[in-house]
């Protein structure tokens, strides 16, 4: 008798649905994944629901409401392995811009009945609330990396997700450096690989949607950008997009904001 297939659950918190959509976007492998794992909870795709424990939980989105701060604890308790997917879940996402906002000023953009709404003043990554077994980055995540994480789970091995910078992917792809050759400000040197270095291949500088690479040298990049006549204000803005609340980007943006 073959053992029961591990159960997969997909959970959503504050997010755009793009990362869980990636699971449906692995078109050629979707039915294989459905064969290897029992897709037990995935409301975006199925009405079916299996209660109980899940061997693998994929969590999308950030924590922005008191209710969600509670719900993530319940998800953790039900999950043997919990993997966060995407910039919202791993770094608070674009929603984390509220973490620097003057909340009263936000409130001054008046809506009819703000009392109907229940929210927190912050957007925080899942690991600020519960233990996370693995973080898969990206805004959105890469489908190849998602398959790698699922495959690693099935074989009980560590996912092979490199922490080096996008620059490595440009070299592998044979893309001439847009910063050196075209003078386009690029965040590639401080951004984790995984997207396949798409932006430089389209004559555009990387905008950091995979978050910081391991030990990013942000001061060095800032000096290069200065030579390209990028102001500190624009540098802070570039650091504060989809991974603004990751520790490295956050520290740097606060330091350069003080200087600006």
């Amino acid at each position: 008798m073959s053992p029961a297939r591990p159960r997969l659950a997909v959970w959503k918190f504050a997010s755009c649905d793009g990362c869980q959509l990636t699971l449906l976007d692995i078109e050629d492998h979707l039915l294989d994944v459905a064969g290897a794992l029992d897709i037990a909870y995935f409301p975006e795709a199925t009405k079916g629901e299996v209660e109980g424990r899940y061997q693998l939980s994929l969590v999308e989105g950030s924590i922005t409401t008191p209710h969600d701060a509670e719900r993530i604890r319940e998800v953790r308790e039900m999950s043997e392995t919990l993997v966060t997917i995407g910039a919202c879940a791993t770094a608070g996402g674009i929603q984390a811009l509220r973490n620097w906002a003057d909340v009263d000023e936000y409130l001054s953009i008046v809506y009819a009945e703000p009392r109907y709404i229940d929210t927190l003043s912050t957007s925080t990554p899942i690991e600020h609330h519960v233990r996370v077994d693995f973080e898969l980055r990206g805004c959105p995540i890469s489908k190849h990396q998602l398959i790698e994480v699922i495959d690693a789970f099935c074989h009980q091995r560590k996912p092979g997700i490199p922490r080096h910078s996008v620059c490595v992917e440009c070299k592998l792809r044979g893309t001439a450096c847009v910063m050196v050759a075209q003078g386009i400000p690029c965040m590639g040197p401080i951004t984790q690989a995984g997207c396949g270095a798409i932006c430089p291949a389209y004559d555009r500088g990387c905008y950091g949607c995979f978050g910081p690479s391991q030990d990013p040298n942000i001061d060095s990049l800032a000096a290069w950008w200065k030579r390209l006549e990028v102001s500190d204000v624009d540098l802070v803005r570039a650091l504060r997009t989809f991974n603004a609340y990751s520790p490295e980007f956050r520290e740097a943006s606060e330091a350069y904001e003080r200087r600006a």
């Binding site: 929210t119 927190l120 912050t122």
Partner: peptide, 17 residues
């Protein structure tokens, strides 16, 4: 219905944590 789309333009009461 795309509910993610629909919830992006509200202001809200804030519970300070």
């Amino acid at each position: 219905p795309c509910i993610s789309c629909a919830t992006h333009f509200l202001d809200l009461t804030v519970e300070r944590g």
